[in-house]
Structure formats: C-alpha cells, structure tokens
C-alpha cells in the first residue's frame, strides 16, 4: 500500500561560491537546521546565473528557484551581483506578468559569515513555496486548454533528457 506523505516543495538554489555557498557551509558547520528542500548548485558568482537557468529549472518541475549572492558592494568580481540583480529583477517581473507565482523566483544576499541568515532564508522560502503549492506551470494540458494531471516523474525525465 502506498503511504501518503506530505508534499514538500523542491527548490533549486544557485549559490555564489564566495559568499552564500560558504554561508551554507557555515550553517552546516554550526549545526544549524534548515529544511532539506533545497538542492544547491555552486556558481562562481551570482552574475553567472542566466535567466535561462531559472526558466529551465521551472520547466523541469522545480517548485522554486533561489539565487543567492554577495551583498551589494561585496562582489568578489566587483560588479557581478549588480548585474545579477538587474537580470533577476527583469526575469521576476516578466514572469509575474506571464502568470508565474511571484514566490517561485527568490533572491537573497547572504555573506560567508551569515550562516544564521542562510537558514532563515531557506526556512522562509520553503514556507512561501508550501503556500504556493506544486509547480504545475509546465504540466501537460489537453487541447481545449484544461489541465491534465501532472505527469509522473519517470516520463518527465525520459522526455526531457
């Protein structure tokens, strides 16, 4: 018999290796607890995050995307996070216009010493995503525009790869 479990949001996080990734590390070293819903991808700078990554993550069925970088003025490459900010601002606003829930695109500034802030960010984001519910954006529809049930994981993968 299949056991009913609570639905948990799946979240992908693009963390800058100079700050937020180290911040996540610090949270771990300090044995702080944060929800295990976050899948972390290390990027060299938040400026590396192409809006395409965010869209692709949503397309693959992730419920939310978190981009985290250094505080303004503290970028290892001087300007990367400022550029990321413009890009993400546009992406977020544009997706909202198209009808994507605003909770699905998240961004934060977390420095290497802010393990506490990192756990709080992941906590808050997970809570918001729980309210937003599963990502049905790219699930299959019938011809008349009505939605069918979300496809099972297996078929999604097979078609995607």
């Amino acid at each position: 018999m299949k056991q009913k479990t609570e639905w948990k949001p799946k979240l992908v996080g693009f963390l800058c290796k100079w700050c937020s990734y180290a911040g996540a590390d610090l949270a771990g070293i300090s044995r702080k607890k944060y929800p295990a819903n976050l899948r972390i991808i290390k990027v060299p700078c938040s400026g590396r995050v192409d809006p395409l990554f965010i869209l692709k993550a949503l397309r693959l069925g992730f419920d939310g995307v978190l981009v985290s970088g250094c505080h303004p003025g503290e970028c290892h490459y001087q300007t990367g996070n400022y550029r990321a900010r413009r890009r993400i601002a546009i992406t977020k606003r544009f997706l909202e216009y198209l009808g994507v829930e605003p909770q699905r695109i998240q961004a934060s500034w977390v420095s290497a010493s802010e393990g506490g802030k990192f756990t709080k960010v992941v906590d808050d984001v997970t809570k918001e995503l729980k309210e937003a519910g599963p990502n049905q954006l790219f699930s299959e529809r019938r011809g008349d525009g009505t939605k069918t049930k979300a496809r099972s994981k297996g078929t999604t993968r097979a078609r995607q790869s």
């Binding site: 303004p72 601002a89 998240q106 500034w109």
Partner: peptide, 12 residues
C-alpha cells in the same frame, strides 16, 4: 551597467 541602489525590493 548598474546603479548602486535599484530594484532591491524583492531581495531577502
């Protein structure tokens, strides 16, 4: 390019 302060509202 960028400004020092802009489009900050949604950053945590």
């Amino acid at each position: 390019h960028y400004e020092q302060e802009e489009a900050e509202d949604f950053f945590r």
